[in-house]
Amino acid sequence: HRQALGERLYPRVQAMQPAFASKITGMLLELSPAQLLLLLASEDSLRARVDEAMELII
Rank of each mutant, 00 (worst) to 15 (best):
T25E: 01
T25H: 05
V50N: 00
I57K: 00
A21P: 02
S32W: 06
A4N: 08
R12C: 05
L28T: 00
L28E: 00
G6Q: 13
L31Q: 04
E52T: 06
L37Y: 13
G6R: 14
A34F: 13
P18V: 04
M54F: 10
P33M: 15
R47C: 03
M54C: 04
R8E: 13
E52R: 08
R12H: 08
L46A: 00
I24K: 00
E52Q: 10
V13W: 02
R49Y: 14
A19E: 15
S45Y: 14
S42A: 07
D44V: 13
R49M: 10
L29T: 03
T25P: 00
P11K: 15
L5T: 05
P33R: 12
L31Y: 05
K23W: 09
Q17Y: 15
S42H: 10
G6P: 05
E55A: 13
F20M: 07
S45Q: 14
Q17I: 12
L29A: 03
Q3K: 11
L38Q: 11
Q35F: 10
M16Q: 05
L40H: 02
I24C: 01
E30T: 12
A53P: 01
L40W: 04
A53Y: 14
Y10T: 03
L40N: 01
A21G: 05
S42N: 14
L46G: 00
T25K: 02
L5W: 11
L31S: 06
E55Q: 14
P18K: 05
I57V: 05
L36E: 00
L9I: 09
A48N: 09
I57G: 02
T25G: 02
E52P: 00
L39Y: 03
L28G: 00
E55P: 02
R49C: 07
M54R: 06
Q17C: 12
P18W: 06
L36P: 00
D44A: 14
L39R: 00
L56A: 09
L31G: 04
M16A: 03
E30Q: 12
L9H: 02
V50P: 00
Q3L: 05
M27F: 06
S45L: 14
S22H: 12
S22M: 15
L37Q: 06
I57E: 02
P11L: 15
M54E: 01
L37R: 08
R49L: 11
L40I: 07
E55R: 14
Q3H: 10
V13F: 02
M16D: 01
A48S: 09
H1N: 13
P18S: 06
E43H: 07
L46E: 00
Y10Q: 04
S45T: 10
Q14W: 12
A15L: 10
L28Y: 01
M54W: 05
A21S: 04
E43Y: 11
A34S: 09
E7L: 08
R12L: 15
I58E: 07
L39M: 11
Q14E: 13
K23R: 14
D51W: 13
E30S: 14
L28I: 05
A41C: 07
L56H: 07
P18Y: 06
G6C: 10
I24P: 00
P11V: 15
M54Y: 10
A53K: 04
E43T: 09
K23A: 14
F20E: 04
Q14S: 09
Y10M: 07
Q3N: 12
A21N: 00
M54V: 08
A53N: 03
L39D: 02
S45V: 12
G26C: 10
F20Q: 05
L37H: 07
Q14V: 11
A4C: 08
I24G: 00
L38R: 11
E52K: 08
A41Q: 11
L39C: 06
A48Y: 13
L38P: 04
R49H: 09
H1Y: 04
I57H: 02
A48C: 07
A4I: 14
I58P: 03
L56Q: 12
L28K: 02
A41D: 08
L28A: 00
A48D: 07
P33T: 11
G6Y: 15
I57Q: 02
A53T: 09
E30Y: 09
L28H: 00
Q3R: 09
L37V: 08
E55T: 14
Q14P: 01
G26P: 06
L37D: 05
S42M: 05
I58M: 12
R2Q: 12
E30L: 11
F20V: 03
I24M: 01
V50G: 00
R47P: 00
F20Y: 13
V13A: 02
I58S: 09
Q17W: 11
A48V: 10
F20D: 04
R2M: 15
A34L: 09
A34N: 08
Q17N: 10
L38D: 06
G26M: 14
E30M: 11
E30A: 12
M54T: 05
E30R: 14
L37G: 06
I24D: 00
A15C: 06
L37S: 06
I57T: 02
K23L: 11
R8L: 15
S45A: 15
Q35G: 04
L37K: 06
Q14R: 15
L9W: 02
Y10F: 12
E30H: 10
E7Q: 13
L37T: 08
V13C: 03
K23E: 11
E52M: 11
L28Q: 00
L29I: 06
I57S: 02
M27E: 02
L9G: 01
L9R: 01
R47L: 05
L9K: 01
H1L: 11
A48T: 08
A19S: 10
A53Q: 05
S32R: 06
M27C: 04
D51S: 09
Q3C: 08
L36M: 05
S32H: 08
R47H: 05
L31K: 03
L36Q: 04
D51T: 10
D51G: 07
S22F: 15
Q17S: 09
H1F: 04
Q14H: 12
E7H: 10
M54I: 06
L5V: 07
E43P: 12
S32C: 06
P11E: 15
A53C: 08
I58A: 12
L31T: 03
A53F: 12
H1K: 08
L31I: 08
Q35A: 13
E30F: 09
F20G: 02
L28V: 01
P11Y: 15
I57C: 04
I58Q: 10
L29Y: 03
Q14A: 14
E52D: 07
M54L: 10
P33S: 14
A48K: 12
L46V: 01
S22T: 10
Q3P: 07
D44E: 13
E30D: 10
A53W: 05
L29C: 03
R2W: 07
L29V: 05
R2N: 14
S32L: 07
G6W: 15
L38A: 10
A21H: 02
L39V: 08
P33V: 13
E7A: 14
D44S: 13
E30W: 09
M27N: 01
S22W: 15
R2C: 09
V50W: 01
L5K: 02
L46M: 04
S42C: 05
A15K: 10
L56K: 13
E55C: 07
G6M: 15
I24N: 00
E43V: 07
M27Q: 04
Q17G: 03
R12V: 10
L56M: 10
Q3S: 09
R2P: 13
E7C: 13
S45H: 11
L56G: 05
G6H: 14
E43R: 07
R12Q: 10
L36I: 11
E52N: 06
E43S: 08
M27A: 04
S42Y: 06
T25A: 04
R2G: 10
A4Q: 13
Y10W: 09
L38N: 07
I58T: 09
L40V: 04
L40M: 08
T25Y: 11
A21W: 03
I24S: 00
A41K: 11
Q35M: 12
A41W: 07
A21K: 00
R2L: 15
A48I: 12
M16F: 07
Q3F: 03
S42L: 05
R12F: 14
S22K: 13
G26F: 15
Q14F: 15
S45D: 12
E43I: 07
Q14M: 11
S42R: 07
E55H: 13
A15W: 04
S45R: 13
G26E: 15
E30I: 06
E43D: 09
I58H: 10
